[in-house]
Simulated scan of single mutants.
Amino acid sequence: MAGYIMTLSDVDSLTYCVKTGTYSTNLSTPKGNWMTHHEGTFADYLSMKPGDSIYFFIKRKIYGIGKLIEINSECRFLNYVGADRPVDYSKKNYGELEPLLDEGTANNRCLCVFEPAPLFFLNGVDMDDALNSNPDRFRMLRAMWKVSFIKVDDDENQALMDIILKRNEENLLRNENAYPYSDTLHNRIRDKNTEQYRLTSDNILLSCAKGNKINHEMAIEAALCELLSEDNSTPMGKWDYISHQVVASPFKAIDYMDKMDIFGYRYIPGYRTKSRYLVVEIKKDEATDDVIGQIMKYVDWIQGEYAYGDYSMIMAYVVASGFSDSVRRKKDRECVRYYTKGCRPAISCIWSSVKLIQYEFIDNKLRLREV
């Protein structure tokens, strides 16, 4: 499963999160519109699935281990009704908002629910120790910078879980030296009508829509994180792992790293074997010719870092409000790769799996169609 590493300011915050089995990001107050960092946070929550691991990061140390759980078929919620609208509720009494969380402010807009799996150990693991324990597995942890939390894939999650368990083997066997947990708050949430607290991308898109277009690319990312995780009816299908802003360049100063808008993979049904990788480049307006070079840069990156020479594992998409004939011609001309598959015999193959997807915002929903 995937994993989430949440940044906290102190151990008291960690104690509260583990005791209640909840985590909520404290967002800045919106000023009439959602900003990119708000929409990015919603996108991260929308990609969460029950069973994903959760960890906490405090002053160089990583604490774990927990897993997201389902309450009334959801593992993430709005903290209060209307929390997904860019309205300043800070001057309203917090209790009047009827929040799910006892402690917090109006800026705790959404939350996820989890339980220890197996324990949240008092003994945290230094970040350098984690990175050195399995260097080839860690990608996103190395790029953790100026964010509330990050998402890691199955391989990185397993590597992080391994080092925390190895450093706490005696505590695990003795079932001790762990932060206390109670399901009291979970049971209270379970007794509520949680349908009205359901987190979707609808209001996030609506807040930045103009006609049938969306003015913020990050809002489209949030919607795709939701759609591609849950809905098999889109032209891109359903994917077992979806994340956004995944690094796609050699490690360098974080602010200069390339990042894929959407990255994902799916398994062979019934197995934990990855069969396909996904990359999506998003343009809120009509796509220009340079998007072709951009998507192919990411395709080549995935081939080298994940697919190891097998282009047939990669499915690439460009999502935009429209495509000119020039972009279509350039796609047909340049989105091609020749490669060899196998050894005895070696098979010459041609890859050309880039598709153009036009989006429209209709009836408060993001509609996608291949062109």
Rank of each mutant, 00 (worst) to 15 (best):
Y317L: 02
Y317I: 04
Y317N: 00
Y317V: 02
V318T: 10
V318Y: 03
V318D: 08
V318Q: 08
V318R: 06
V318L: 15
V319M: 07
V319A: 03
V319R: 01
V319H: 06
V319F: 09
V319P: 11
A320M: 12
A320L: 13
A320W: 15
A320P: 11
A320F: 14
S321D: 15
S321M: 15
G322T: 13
G322V: 13
G322F: 13
F323M: 09
F323L: 10
F323I: 10
F323N: 10
S324Y: 01
S324R: 02
D325L: 04
D325C: 01
D325Q: 05
S326D: 13
S326I: 10
S326G: 04
S326R: 14
S326N: 07
S326V: 13
S326H: 09
V327C: 14
V327S: 10
V327F: 11
R328K: 15
R328C: 12
R328V: 12
R328F: 09
R329V: 05
R329F: 03
R329L: 08
R329H: 06
R329P: 00
K330I: 04
K330N: 02
K330D: 02
K330T: 08
K330E: 06
K330P: 00
K331A: 09
K331H: 06
K331E: 01
K331F: 03
K331V: 05
K331Q: 11
D332M: 12
D332C: 06
R333P: 02
R333T: 12
R333Y: 07
R333M: 07
E334G: 02
E334R: 07
E334P: 03
C335D: 04
C335Q: 04
C335W: 08
C335Y: 05
V336S: 01
V336G: 00
V336A: 00
V336H: 03
V336T: 06
V336E: 04
R337H: 15
R337N: 11
Y338F: 04
Y338E: 12
Y339D: 02
Y339S: 02
Y339A: 04
T340I: 14
T340D: 06
T340Q: 11
T340F: 13
T340M: 10
K341I: 04
K341L: 10
K341E: 14
G342P: 14
G342E: 14
C343I: 15
C343K: 13
C343V: 14
R344A: 00
R344H: 01
R344D: 01
R344W: 05
R344I: 00
R344M: 00
P345W: 09
P345H: 12
P345Q: 11
P345D: 11
P345V: 12
P345R: 08
P345A: 12
A346M: 15
A346E: 11
A346C: 07
A346R: 13
I347F: 07
I347P: 01
I347T: 09
S348Q: 15
S348R: 15
C349T: 08
C349K: 14
C349Q: 14
I350T: 02
I350E: 02
I350A: 00
I350C: 02
W351D: 09
W351S: 09
W351F: 10
W351E: 09
W351N: 07
W351M: 09
W351G: 05
S352N: 14
S352C: 08
S352M: 06
S353M: 01
S353I: 00
S353F: 03
